[in-house]
Design a protein around this nucleic acid. Structure first.
Length: 427
RNA sequence: GGAGAGAUGGCAGAGUGGUCGAAUGCACCGGUCUUGAAAACCGGCAAGGGUUAAUAGCCCUUCUAGGGUUCAAAUCCCUAUCUCUCCGCCA
């Protein structure tokens, strides 16, 4: 959520900055609502003040044993007047908050302006794509050849966009997650966490999946039903970041750096026909997530650091990649600045996203009321960051394709061998 | 699944219709004392919002959440959620 002051005092500038990411802010409507809100709120609060003071004097008179009937008469229809105003104000406020909750974050000044993914900018590249002296296979053929990827069974058990893994490939998948967690905890200073895979609506509002993107999630029951319906997490960012929801953390605890390996569940609504072959786009996939909770002044550097932590995994695995800074038009809803890591996939002859690292600044913290006590002892909104470190399934895809041999076997990257009982080759 | 108890400020914990936004303790901040620290003593210390040039004043809201009763609710009623205790069951 943006600072409400932006929508009041810097509406035009805010609208211009949002326009760079393709979001049209309805300035006229907001101005009108704001004007109404201002007068209505003042009137309502004045009525409340009046009611409070009369009620107080009734109490005082009673305490003195006086007759309260004359004062009671003053109350008149104050109650019903107040109820009407209150209702009117509540409706107005919820309309305004509806706008606030569905307005994306402002792009950071350093983000290149652009319309879509074609205008993202390569920041740096690492590694040389390997040249093959044989016809490369894609991960589907390789995985099926090794009897490790079983798409057919997944369809039978559940449906499309799910996977059954077996044998050495299932083991490599597990090894990758363990390798990533160990790297982040032992070398990058993160604390490992185990978190729920089902979360409540408040958490999803906190990190920004709701109210706007509910259709991207799997829900255990309709969100409208009474009682809180739980939803499957689309990323561990949700439970990890919400750990600080509604809390004032001690300054000494900052920065908070957490990592977790979880499955992620996405309905992939609107992506019909995209990436239908293989593991690239699944309804359920594993990811090792990194989250940082930092002081506002530290978030710029924290994003660079966190992105570096994700890159480190690719480097250790010897997978060529490039780092992109997303342009204004391609960033996610809550992000002020995002780096995507794209890994080289020989079978597709292209780079594909394998990690996304974002600085949300105070966007999520404001929704979550996540704060720490600053120098003057006043609560200050924190900054939150998150990034994949990495998507496990896509990393598996990258290894299968980049480390394939002519006979269909797969060389195990050296960094991974200790996690696979020293195994050097799949197949 | 059955029975009971509870949810109050950063934490602990009083408060059962009216000067209660809330006693007290701890933590925290400032001061006195001390060579310094500790202790002791004195003072301060909830959050969100509105108005405003203001981080000044004033006002509103908030005692798990949502409804209700009342001129007035932390306090009474209803519902939900969560926690604890006992019984049952269970990986």
């Amino acid at each position: 959520m943006l600072d409400p002051k932006f929508l009041r005092t810097e509406l035009e500038v805010t609208a211009e900055r949002l326009a760079t990411r393709g979001f049209i802010l309805d300035v006229d409507r907001i101005q009108k609502l704001e004007e109404k809100r201002k007068s209505l709120q003042v009137e309502t609060e004045e009525l409340q003040a009046k009611r409070n003071s009369i009620s107080k004097s009734i109490g005082q008179a009673k305490a003195r044993g006086e007759d309260v009937a004359p004062i009671m008469a003053q109350v008149g229809d104050l109650g019903s007047q107040l109820d009407a105003k209150k209702q009117e104000l509540a409706d107005l406020l919820s309309e305004i908050s509806g706008i606030a909750m569905t307005t994306p974050n402002l792009p950071d000044e350093s983000v290149p302006v652009g319309a879509d993914e074609n205008e993202n900018v390569v920041v740096r590249s690492w590694g040389e794509p390997r040249s093959f002296d044989f016809e490369v296979k894609d991960h589907v053929d390789l995985g099926e050849g090794l009897q490790g990827l079983d798409f057919k069974s997944a369809v039978k058990i559940t449906g499309s966009r799910f996977i059954v893994m077996k044998g050495q490939i299932a083991r490599m998948h597990r090894a990758l997650a363990a390798f990533m967690l160990d790297t982040h905890t032992l070398e990058h200073g993160y604390t490992e966490a185990y978190v729920p895979y089902l979360v409540n609506a408040d958490s999803l509002l906190g990190t920004g999946q709701l109210p706007k993107f509910g259709e991207d999630l799997f829900h255990t029951k309709p969100a409208t039903e009474e009682g809180q319906g739980l939803s499957l997490i689309p990323t561990a960012e949700v439970p990890l970041t919400n750990l600080v929801r509604d809390t004032i953390v001690d300054e000494a605890e900052l920065p908070i750096k957490l990592t977790a390996h979880t499955p992620c569940f996405r309905s992939e609504a609107g992506s019909y026909g995209k990436d239908t072959r293989g593991l690239i786009r699944q309804h359920q996939f594993d990811k090792v997530e990194m989250v940082q909770i930092v002081k506002p002044e530290d978030s710029i550097n924290a994003l660079e650091e966190l992105t570096g932590h994700a890159e480190k995994i690719l480097q250790k695995l010897g997978l060529p990649y490039r780092t992109m800074v997303l342009c204004t038009g391609d960033m996610g809803f809550g992000s002020a600045k995002t780096y995507d890591l794209e890994v080289w996939l020989p079978a597709q002859n292209t780079y594909r996203e394998i990690s996304s690292c974002s600085n949300m600044q105070d966007f999520q913290a404001r929704r979550m009321q996540a704060r720490y006590r600053g120098g003057d002892n006043k609560p200050v909104l924190l900054h939150t960051l998150n990034g994949s470190g990495l998507a496990v399934g896509r990393t598996l895809v990258a290894i299968l394709e980049n480390y394939q041999n002519a006979d269909g076997t797969i060389t195990v990257p050296e960094a991974l061998r200790p996690y696979m009982g020293g195994l050097e080759k799949l197949g």
